[in-house]
Amino acid sequence: MHEEFLENFLEHQRDLRAFIGSLVREPAAREDVFQEVALILWREWERFDRTKSFGAWARGIAANKILHRQRADRRFPVAFEPETMERILEAFDSVEHDFQVQALRHCMDELPAPSRELLELRYQDDLRCEAIAEQTERSVDAVYQTLSRLRRLLRDCVKRTIAEA
């Protein structure tokens, strides 16, 4: 039983993190929610209908947990109204997971060194854009724009790589 749960959890944990991270932008709160949801999934695993999607089940529990937290504490860092959260949840269920890790690694390797360094400062060192701007001697807006552009580049590259594979 442990093993079946583990396989499902490992397969979907990245997407679960993506969903929680799309709603809760503060890292510590995000991690709290993720861990709470993981615990609930484990406890409720016996009752999970195996014919349904594990990912959708996990996201549903996460959405409820976030709503509950938001109701209990108005300062809980969620930027959206419940109605918008509901739409995002539906979109996660319906939009195909359109990238693969192997393709992402390939595309990251293709990036020029300065772009890669910028992504590392943002995602590896978890630095705020203001701090990245100081370190790289760019304006804060330029950092925001470059990061957005890099994400679009990576997404396009991933799509292309998957299509060519």
Binding site: R17, A18, G21, S22, V101, L119, R151
Partner: peptide
């Protein structure tokens, strides 16, 4: 959201 999460995971 999915790409940002994958980048965090990777890096």
């Amino acid at each position: 959201a999915r790409l940002a999460s994958a980048l965090e995971d990777e890096l």
